[in-house]
Amino acid sequence: MPMLASVAAESMARKVFSQCSVEESMACGIGVCMTCVLPVIGEDGITRMLRSCVDGPIFRGDRVRWSEIGTVPEGTWGSEALRS
């Protein structure tokens, strides 16, 4: 993951399009369990916890919130419910 994050950062700095195949720890691998999620920014600018197994594993490098993997970033869709 740190390598993918660096590749994505480097590409963004050089204004080059990048795609990354992520590898989160998975229980089912078919989209039913929700263990493999990571924060990804959608077309609409909203961050969602997406499943790497079926929504990915390939995401645009500039859409994954690399440094915040392992957290639910502020403003993520549905995170208010968790914090309230």
């Binding site: 392992g70 549905g78 968790l82």
Partner: peptide, 17 residues
């Protein structure tokens, strides 16, 4: 089905398993 709540919910941070 997976337990559903009133509002959308992000769930917890990872690792989750």
């Amino acid at each position: 089905t997976k337990s559903i709540m009133l509002a959308p919910r992000s769930g917890r941070a990872t690792p989750r398993m």
